[in-house]
Design a protein around this nucleic acid. Structure first.
Lengths: 90, 90
DNA sequence: TCACTAAGAAAGTCTTAGCGA
DNA sequence: TCGCTAAGACTTTCTTAGTGA
């Protein structure tokens, strides 16, 4: 199956993962995905081959300390604003 | 099938739809869904029975003049900020 | 170890055809 | 017309088992 990439999710995931230093597999495991499936699933997400359900997005978002909304943000300016908003919380 | 409602999507959709004055069916049609399927699908989305793919979310978001990120926002404060940000655009 | 992929198994959504208010 | 639903058809994701760098 080839990438559809209709959504900002894959691009936002890659951006946030690279900033965090996680590998695809280790991020998946940290988000609670089975260790034998983590590499394939995270790669499929990051390449836009498949889209995860919301519970998975939430788990990834929590590991990366970002709001779930960030991953569905089409506008760069808004994405930046969401990141800044998150950094001002605790 | 019963509601899972793991995501903020259904709640955000209902909030935005009611504010707009659309019925479930008419919003679906305005977003490009087939007229015979629009009522069932929009109701399933709004009740959290099923989750739409991103292209459908984007189409709904455009009809309601909201960023796609709004529909995946868990935090009330951030949701409000996103609405305000959208209103300040054109 | 890393990113990545094919393909069958599994789980999801969509359409149709209705319901009662 | 409105919100809503069951269930089979259909389409998607997930798991497994690998590849090459």
């Amino acid at each position: 199956m080839q990438a559809k990439d209709e959504s900002p999710f894959s691009r936002r995931l890659k951006e946030a993962r690279l900033a965090s230093g996680y590998s695809q597999k280790s991020l998946g495991i940290a988000a609670g995905i089975d260790e034998f499936a983590a590499s394939a699933r995270m790669n499929q997400y990051e390449r836009g081959v498949h889209a995860p359900d919301f519970l998975t997005v939430r788990a990834i978002a929590r590991v990366l300390n970002l709001p779930t909304a960030f991953f569905y943000c089409e506008e760069e300016e808004l994405a930046e604003m969401i990141k800044v908003w998150q950094q001002g919380r605790f």
